[in-house]
Design a protein around this nucleic acid. Structure first.
Lengths: 162, 162
DNA sequence: TTCATATCGTTGCATATGCAACTAAAAAAC
DNA sequence: GTTTTTTAGTTGCATATGCAACGATATGAA
């Protein structure tokens, strides 16, 4: 990732522009690309699978014996069902998770994390943790981190079903 | 996009967790997904191409006659050259941009926006503008928007080459 | 019970993205 | 001037994602 210190790309060319919200939006958009790319690259360089795998493993690791129905996972991680189905394919191929037929619902199955999956998530965490440290904790003050948290929470809650 | 009001998914299960930066990270990650998805969906529902097309058209629209070399575009939008090459393929197929041989560098070409491209960007903007209004301006106070801008700026500058 | 409808999950197809290899031309080294 | 190295851009391949259609089961209504 090699960013040039270019002038900020504003979203419009129309007059009376840009509004403040538009500047904030463009920065948010770009930071998402840059920061995620940094974290993904760190994981990859350490020989680990991408963040989406971590998310899935984490959700399953929270439900040790029981496992989770696919649609339950879909509610937790932001993936629609067909993508989730194939993400699980990939993890199952690596023996990190396991599909088990569901005895209360013949249509579905229950996804359980394997011991190998548990170990994988555990091994990924230090890298992930350090990456978060680098992209969030180091550049910002405590106050800024609190503020960021509050703002993101506000933005998210606006779009959550009640 | 149908988000459940689920408990926040924290990134780790390790003890003494989570640090504040980790909460902020997870919220940032998720809000980026959600907000971008909302904006992309609005564009799509209005019959328009995705944000990446807008970005490219905008950069070119800023250089009306001259056009831009592909590597110059690559510096402005965050795309590596092979993806950019194919993005331009798609836009060229829709006659929104045009590849012109570069007379000062036989290897490269100059990308110019067409009149149709200019019109397309102009037509997309009201939808995009309204989407930004909805996901950023409406939920946040002016103060929060300023704060968000400052924080994103800080996060980004940390990872820019000097 | 039976039929219509909704839900769970998978698959085929089109598109998007990352990586590595490649062509061609420019720039640098000699 | 010739050779080597870098740079610009494209293409093939593997993978990832969105959409629509599908099979199978569960749920609700008559």
């Amino acid at each position: 990732m090699h960013l040039q210190p270019i002038a900020l790309t504003l979203p419009s060319m129309e007059k009376n522009r840009p509004k403040k919200a538009e500047i904030a939006w463009v920065l948010l958009l770009r930071s998402q690309q840059v920061l995620i790319d940094i974290v993904e690259t760190k994981l990859k360089n350490a020989g680990f699978p991408p963040l989406s795998w971590y998310d899935l493993l984490l959700e399953l690791d929270r439900e040790p014996g029981r496992g989770l129905r696919q649609y339950e996972i879909g509610e937790r991680v932001l993936l629609n069902k067909h993508n989730l189905s194939r993400l699980i394919d990939r993890l199952e191929k690596q023996a990190l998770v396991q599909r088990v037929a569901c005895d209360t619902d013949g249509r579905g199955n229950v996804i359980k994390i394997t011991e190998k999956g548990v170990q994988m998530r555990k091994a990924m965490w230090p890298i992930y943790e350090q990456a978060i440290q680098e992209v969030i904790a180091n550049p910002l003050t405590i106050k800024q981190i609190d503020s960021l948290t509050e703002i993101m929470d506000t933005l998210l809650n606006r779009h959550i079903d009640v």
